[in-house]
């Protein structure tokens, strides 16, 4: 018999619309998409032509790009159930390292960039080792590294250069690769951001490593029971978020031809806000890269769009606060729905 007849008729497919609606709700980026579209429409109405012009678009896209390069790996870490509050100081220290090595001492750019990235990776590695070895919440560990590293950066900068701001003159091709403006408006960082999103998106949603990230964030004990090295996954993810921060440090230094010790602290909370607005659960175990990208766009549109409305910029923070709260509530509702909706009994 070539074709085996099914013993029983296959269960009738549920109505297409019903299934796709359920699939849509199941996706972590649905809420994030609604948020992005809403704020875009809002500022398109109140910001007018200026907001929609290429200049207006560039202003929020540039902010989104720099934030996004950090928010995507931070989002991965949050899906695995950990926080990274040290990205601010990692950015600043990498930035200063590059400026000191290649600007102050005049070493080749490649060495300065290499040192900046290496310092970031080392910090991430330390974060990961401390968190996994001590079981102290990453909130506290990375808060400590953020302060510690900020102090070291300031101290070493003063000792080595005597100032807290160091200039650098990057040449070709570093300027083109990291810190130029395309069409006089768009930072190359936008392409770095797209690259990070594609690579990390692949890692999280397509590769096997992504499955481990979800498992570690979903239930650490069970993840360990399956034989995954929870420790290595977490250390790798802490190195990832630090790498993102170091990359933005390099980009900013080359773009602005200088580094300041105080740079980057705004990224600490902004990255978390973008991730949460992007639909990642604070409890871990759930989220998507597309969601984080959308959350980052929402954040940037609100922060920059406000300038085109003619209102005080204070209102941007207010809107972001509301969005953050709404996102957390929505994410929690989603979580409850996913956990309680038991098997539908079909006839």
């Amino acid at each position: 018999m070539a074709v085996q007849a099914p013993a029983a008729p296959a269960p009738a497919r549920p109505l297409v619309s019903g299934a796709s609606v359920r699939n849509l709700i199941r996706r972590p980026e649905t809420g994030a998409l609604i948020g992005t579209v809403s704020v875009f429409v809002f500022f398109a109405i109140f910001g007018g032509q200026q907001f929609l012009s290429s200049g207006g678009t560039a202003s929020w896209l540039n902010v989104a790009a720099e934030l996004g390069i950090i928010a995507i790996p931070v989002g991965l870490l949050m899906i695995a159930g950990e926080l990274d509050l040290s990205v601010g100081s990692v950015l600043a220290s990498s930035s200063m390292t590059l400026a000191i090595v290649s600007g102050h001492y005049g070493a080749p750019m490649i060495i300065g960039i290499g040192a900046a990235i290496a310092l970031g990776l080392l910090t991430g590695f330390l974060n990961g080792v401390l968190v996994t070895a001590t079981n102290v919440p990453s909130f506290v560990v990375t808060l400590a590294t953020n302060f510690g590293l900020a102090g070291l950066t300031l101290g070493f900068s003063r000792v080595i250069t005597g100032t807290t701001s160091v200039a650098i003159e990057p040449g070709s091709p570093d300027k083109e690769l990291f810190g130029t403006l395309l069409a006089d408006k768009f930072e190359v960082a936008v392409f770095w951001w797209i690259g990070v999103a594609v690579v990390v998106g692949w890692m999280l949603h397509v590769s096997r490593f992504g499955n481990w990230i979800f498992a570690v964030g979903g239930d650490t004990v069970s993840a360990r029971a399956t034989g995954i090295s929870v420790r290595n996954v977490k250390i790798g993810l802490f190195m990832g978020s630090a790498l993102g921060a170091a990359l933005v440090g390099v980009i900013q230094t080359i773009l602005y031809n200088s580094a300041q010790v105080a740079n980057g602290q705004s990224f600490v909370f902004n990255s978390i806000i973008a991730v949460v607005i992007g639909g990642v659960l604070l409890t871990g175990g759930y989220g998507s890269v597309v969601g984080v990208v959308l959350g980052t766009l929402t954040f940037a549109i609100v922060q920059q769009g406000i300038y085109y409305t003619g209102w005080e910029s204070d209102w941007a923070s207010f809107i972001l606060g509301i969005l953050l709260l709404a996102a957390v509530l929505m994410n929690n509702t989603f979580r409850r729905m996913a956990l309680s909706s038991s098997t539908k009994k079909k006839a």
């Binding site: 979903g218 239930d219 069970s222 993840a223």
Partner: peptide, 19 residues
């Protein structure tokens, strides 16, 4: 209290660590 990953799909959670 555990053994499975509530927010993962059935297929994904079945193969965690042996994808």
């Amino acid at each position: 209290f555990g053994g499975t990953f509530p927010l993962m799909s059935i297929g994904r959670s079945f193969f965690v660590g042996a994808e």
